[in-house]
Structure formats: C-alpha cells, structure tokens
Design a protein around this nucleic acid. Structure first.
Lengths: 341, 341
DNA sequence: TAAATTAGCTAAAACGATTTAAATAATTTA
DNA sequence: TAAATTATTTAAATCGTTTTAGCTAATTTA
C-alpha cells in the first residue's frame, strides 16, 4: 500500500552524488556551499520533475524544529475561541507554521495531558488558555526553553508572556453604564473560578457597585458543558434575588443560558431586567433587543499573541523580560441596557 | 537554552545495557522479548523517576506513524464547523491521536496547499471538508495510501469515504413545511457553488417548489468573508423579488446576514416573510422569533467520521469498498415559519 | 613550479527512536 | 557431560534528514 516515498538519497543516487550535496541544494545553500550552478540546476530540475518533498519528520528530528505551534484553548467550538483560533491559524500559516490545537473544556488534568502530548511532539511554541492549576506544567515546558504565550487569563506567579484585555476596566465601564441607565440592582453571573480574567471582571463589577453604594449580588456557577445546569442556577438565583434589575454575564455561554432563562421566565429586556455580557457574537448583536456587549478585538489580540510568540521563538526564551500586553476591549451599548428614567 | 533532553540511550547507559533493551521495556514488550522481570522493573522505575518521555518525532520516523490526523474545514470559527471540530478532537484524543487543523475559507488553492503541508507532516489520516476543485489533490493523497474521509460535501468522481447528511431530503421537508404554512413564494439563498451539499439542498428546494407549481427564486452569492457583501446581495434580491414571502438559507452565515438585512428593511418574521435555515445554533434558537432550522446531529456525524477513518487506518486504504454514509438531519420547526392561514 | 588558495563536492556523525537477527549465558535433555 | 534448548540481552541496520569537517582537483599566487 502506498507508493514508496522517494528520499534525498534516491536523488543522490540518480546523479551519482552525495546526499549532503542534494540536501544543500534543496535548502538553498548551493551558493554558500559553492556547488556549481550547473549541478544545482540539474538537481532542482529533477526535484521539480519528480515532485520530491523532504520528509518533514526526519527534517524536524535533525533540526529540532517542528514548525508547528500548539494551541490550547478552552473550547474550539466557542464563539470567542473559535474565531480567535481562526485568526491565529491564519497568522501561523503565513509564517510557515502549522497549528495543533486542543480544547481543555476547563479541565486541568486534561490540559496538562495535552501539554505533555504537545511537548512530546516537539512543537516549537505554545499558545495556552490555561485552566487554573496549570502553573507547574507551564513552568516545566518553559524550563525546556520552549516559548509560551499565555492568553485570555493570567497564570499566577509564573514568569511568562501574557496577552489579555482590560477586563476590570471595561467591566467597570459596562457596569457604570448600567448604573447610568438607571439600573439599581445589578447581578453578576460568573464562573466559580479563580481564573484571573474572571477575578478581574468581578473586580470591575465590584468597583462600580461600591462606588455607587449598591449591593453586590453575585452568582458563581461551576464550569460545565451542560447548558441546562446553567439555566437552573440562573433561574434559582433570580428567584432568590427578586430585586435584581440587571444582569451582567461574565462569559458568552453564561449569557446564552441567561437569555434562555429570562425568556422562560417571561422577563422582558430591558424593561424588567437589563442585560450586558462580556464578548460579542452574532446572537448578541441580533437578539431582540440587541444585547450590550464587550467586544474583544480579535484581530489585535491574535496579532499580539503571534508577535510575542515569534519574538520568543527567534530570541530564545531566556534573558528577555516577560511582557504583559493588555489589548483594550470596547463596550458596545445596545438596547438591552437602555432604559433612561 | 533548555534542558538537554534525556534519551533512551542515556537510560541504557545508566544501567549499562543496550538501548534496544530499554526500547523493548518501554514499549511493553519485555515479556515477549523475555526480558527479566527484575530488569524490567528497574528500568521502568527509573523511567518513572526521571520522567522520561520518548521523542515523538524519532519514534514516528522509525515507525512511520505520526499519530496525528489532519482536519481541513472551511472555517474553524463557524458555528457548525467549530463545534464539530470539538467533537472530532475529543474522539481523536480518546484514541491517542492529535489533531492538526486548518481552515480553507473556501479557497481551493489554500486547501491544496494545506493538504500538501499535512502530507509532508506525515499525518496518519485526513478529515477533509473540501472546496470544489480538490479532486486531484485528494486522489494524490489517497494514492499514497493515506486514509481520507471527506465530510459535509462529496467530491465528484473520487473514490473516497464520505460522511454527510440527507441534504436534499431534509431541505425538501423544510420547504414543504413552508408551503404547508401557507408561504407561496419561497426564495432560496445559497452559495454560488457546485459543492454537492449545496446542489443537494437546492435540489430539495426545487423538488418542493416544482411539486407545488411554485416559482423558483434563487439567489446565489459568492463565498466571501464579508458579511456586508452578503447583506447587500440579499437586500437587492428582496427588492427585485417583492413577491417573495419566505426565505430558506442554505448555510448559517447566509442566514445571519439575512436576519440582519430583514431587520434593516423592517420586515417582520414571519408576518412579512418566513425564514428557515440549514444548521442550528444559539442565534437561531434564541432569535425573536425563533428560527426554524435543520439540525445536523453533531455527535453522530463526528462518530461516523472517526469510525470510518479509523477503519481505514487499521485496514489500509485499498481493497475495501468506499462507503457513503448519510446521517439524517432533523427539522426543528419554530415560529419563524409558523403562519397558518 | 612549488605553495597557497579556491572551487566543488563528499563522508560520516547526529537526531532518537524501532526492529531484526544474533550472540551469550543458563538450563535441560539425552 | 556433550548437545540441545531456552532465557536474556545485544549489535547493528533503519527511518530521512542536517551539518561539520575535510578531501581532491583546479586555479592562483609568488
């Protein structure tokens, strides 16, 4: 089965020359190695003719570079991570890298296993959206000298490049906007997680509430794959906190569950309850009423991620100061929060 | 930079034994190779102690297996392809495979390049959502004996395993439902593409229209990344076909553009115009009014895809009959098409 | 015209495993 | 106790590249 693959050795044999010569020619080092133009042309012609492609793994084994980067996200099917993965992939491709991806679904052990697997595959660099508890695993990878960029959430106490957004500031802005619109009791629906981006968003909320002498009303749910669990928790939360007149959702999928719940409860947005959410997508834009969202700039984020990673790949991981790059998000105000009294 | 990685040779040296012995032990062949329990235990203990992991590439080079599969989809950020990619990845992982993915964005040349790249990387198998014109490239890969599963759309004239859904039948059912609801002039918005799934969906539409002696009113737009282009085309289409009282969208992103357009034009669903769409997602479910959709069974599809691929990986690509597996979709009727007269 | 330089190419080690064929040591068998 | 068998282990080839060090022949220099 399959055609026996031709190797550099076969080409060498064909011309009665050494395979090193062939290798040099193929890698564009003919001139530098002072190989005659004539031989170069003949070999290149033959390579073209038979459609020879060097064996990727063999090359990687010899050079120690795999030309691939490992992307570990929470969920490739998510309306935030999916599109950003697309952007990352596009950039990677344009620089000659392939992307190996994996979704953690928030599971730490899973994430650690994935990291191990990638490590064994010799990826040249990592882009990681880490669940909590990955500190050690990431440090281990870095100790091996591999470039790592942590994205979306920070890793506590780990010296590593990080790209994120102004979670606290923009959440604060969103909540202040709610206050200005006359909402008095803003509930905050988030994940029960110590992930930095969640903590920051919560802090932004608290900051706004405190400043207005309001009540903090927070629902923290466990990350799970099941939407109906989210719905039940939100429903119960709303029943226990009848006074709540607005909800801020800290992630898009929580908001999806929230919108369903509000519809089930026949609560009208924004008359009965205001709604805003972190992350933008088609649903929020086209929902009736359109939902006020916080939009992360995918293009800028992916650009920053990739530039940072590449710098590391080129420079090596040591000796350089680690950067924390914050790309600001944008508050998009829509009808779901407009209720001027 | 980086810690020098330990190799099988280092372990051999440590025990003053041959590296082949170490290799056998690590690969669980100690018994079969009659290596003493005692040595096996010592080596395994040491391996554990120092956390040795065999070099993936070296192993792949020696065995000819890379334990990775290449996934080529249209757009990993799409609300259909993203979630299905997640499912595929989960299955792959559970079988010990990694997934390398890439998005074509409908570009044939891009897809061919990706395929080439994957080929060079020695992936063990391919899952491909092919743009038109990939026939030859896919055949070439198959000639090399690599397992290929084509998904979502068929590849004309290529002998290859295919997993898809009952596009024509279910689209027919959806359109018949529109008819039954009293819609008289159903417009069909699709891609200007000869992709099989698009052709089948169109045929399902035509079948329903013909059967009811209706008028075929079809808008074929070019695949592009820009939503506003879609919107403009749809707007113009609606202006040129004032009589149209329902729209069926052949893909989710066309429908997103369509919903925006209808909103811009202040057309009410379903009073002014009915709406149905191929593929289900949060937006369609929660839109007001909820949109009638055709839901492809992600779980079953991914299962079928992976099972088919695995069969090929195990059996080799030759000598077996190629299968076309059709996993039926489900029509989910919602308010956007309910207008009984 | 001998020595130095340069042009053009090659041999062999290395990357880190797997795998086949075989060697050696211990134990049975006859 | 020599031959046969079995239990352990090993050497070396292989996978397909890259890369370092060096060789030979032609040319230039002195």
């Amino acid at each position: 089965m399959g055609v026996k693959k031709i190797s550099i050795y076969d080409i060498a044999k064909h011309f009665q020359i050494a395979k090193s010569t062939v290798s040099f020619i193929i890698n564009g080092k003919a001139e530098e190695r002072r190989i005659s133009k004539e031989l170069e042309k003949r070999v290149l012609g033959y390579v073209e003719e038979i459609g020879f492609k060097p064996h990727y793994l063999a090359r990687s084994l010899a050079t120690g570079k795999s030309n691939s980067i490992g992307l570990i996200v929470e969920n490739i099917g998510d309306s935030f991570f999916g599109p950003i993965a697309l952007k990352i992939e596009e950039r990677a491709k344009s620089m000659g890298y392939r992307v190996v991806y994996s979704s953690t679904l928030g599971n730490t052990q899973e994430a650690i296993d994935i990291l191990k697997l990638f490590r064994e595959t010799q990826v040249d660099g990592y882009i990681i959206v880490p669940p909590v508890g990955m500190e050690e695993a990431v440090e281990e990878v870095m100790r091996e000298g591999k470039p790592v960029v942590v994205f979306d959430r920070m890793l506590d106490g780990v010296q590593v490049d990080y790209i994120g957004t102004n979670n606290q500031e923009i959440t604060y802005a969103a909540c202040m906007h709610l206050v200005e619109e006359g909402f008095k009791n803003i509930g905050f629906v988030t994940l029960d997680s110590s992930q930095s981006q969640m903590v920051e968003r919560l802090n932004g909320y608290k900051q706004a509430i405190d400043q207005n002498n309001g009540n903090e009303v927070v629902l923290s749910v466990n990350y799970c794959s099941n939407r109906s669990d989210y719905k039940n928790e939100i429903k119960q939360f709303l029943q226990e906190h009848q006074q709540v007149d607005a909800l801020f959702f800290a992630t898009n999928y929580l908001c999806v569950a929230g919108l369903e719940t509000l519809r089930d409860l026949q609560k009208h947005i924004p008359e009965d309850i205001g709604v805003a959410v972190f992350d933008e997508n088609d649903l929020f834009r086209l929902f009736d009423p359109a939902i006020t969202t916080i939009e992360q700039p995918l293009e800028d984020l992916s650009k920053a991620i990739f530039q940072t990673l590449q710098k590391r790949i080129l420079r090596g991981s040591n000796r350089v100061v680690y950067t924390k790059k914050i790309i600001p998000s944008r508050l998009i105000v829509r009808q779901s929060t407009i209720r001027r009294k």
